[in-house]
Simulated scan of single mutants.
Amino acid sequence: MAHDASENSPVKELLTSLIGITLFLAMVVGIGVFAFLRPAGEHHSEPLQTAETAVETVAK
């Protein structure tokens, strides 16, 4: 059987919900920060070869 609703403590429930929301937001912000800071991959400073220049290079 369920417990009596008069045994609930509004302060305890409010603190529990605020702590849960805070932890959730901390995880979301942490994921966002680490996603922003992670390496984006290789960036080539020189332009990629086209098929024509690749053929010319190989033909030399």
Rank of each mutant, 00 (worst) to 15 (best):
A2S: 13
L18H: 02
L37F: 05
P47D: 03
A26N: 03
I19C: 09
K12Y: 06
A2H: 07
L25H: 03
R38D: 05
E13C: 03
Q49S: 10
H3D: 15
G32S: 09
L48P: 00
V11A: 13
Q49M: 12
F36I: 04
A2Y: 09
S9P: 00
T16R: 05
E7L: 13
L37Q: 08
T53E: 15
F24M: 10
A54W: 15
A51Y: 11
M27K: 01
G32R: 03
H43L: 07
H3E: 13
P10Y: 01
L23H: 02
I19W: 04
V58M: 14
E7A: 11
A26V: 11
A59Q: 14
V33Q: 04
K60I: 05
F34S: 13
T22I: 04
T53A: 06
T16Q: 06
P47H: 02
V29R: 00
S45H: 11
G41I: 01
P39Y: 02
E56H: 01
A35C: 06
T22Q: 06
E7R: 10
M1K: 14
P10C: 02
A59M: 14
N8Y: 07
L23D: 03
L15D: 05
M1P: 12
A51H: 10
E52N: 09
E7N: 07
E42Y: 10
T50S: 15
P39I: 01
M27Q: 01
K60V: 07
D4F: 11
Q49L: 10
T22L: 10
T50P: 00
V11R: 09
G32F: 05
K60C: 07
T50L: 01
R38G: 08
H44L: 13
A2D: 13
R38Q: 09
S17H: 09
L15G: 01
G20A: 07
T50N: 12
L25R: 06
G41D: 02
P10Q: 02
T53C: 01
A40W: 02
E42H: 08
P47T: 03
L18F: 08
I19S: 14
A5T: 11
P39L: 00
V55L: 14
H3P: 03
L25K: 05
V28M: 07
L25D: 03
T57R: 13
A35L: 11
A35D: 05
F34Q: 09
E42F: 08
T53S: 12
V55C: 07
E56R: 11
I31M: 09
A59Y: 08
F34T: 14
V29L: 08
F24A: 14
G30P: 00
T16E: 11
S45N: 11
T16V: 03
G32E: 02
P39A: 00
L23F: 07
K60H: 11
I31T: 12
H44P: 02
E13R: 05
A2C: 12
V33W: 06
L23Y: 02
A5N: 14
E42P: 07
Q49A: 08
A2W: 07
K12D: 03
A26P: 01
E42N: 07
V11N: 08
P47K: 04
I19Q: 14
S9W: 06
P47N: 02
K60E: 14
F36G: 06
S6A: 15
E52V: 06
M1V: 14
N8T: 12
L14H: 00
A2P: 15
H3S: 13
L48A: 15
A26Q: 04
A40F: 04
I21G: 03
G30D: 02
T16F: 06
V28H: 01
A59V: 11
E46L: 13
F36Y: 13
E13P: 00
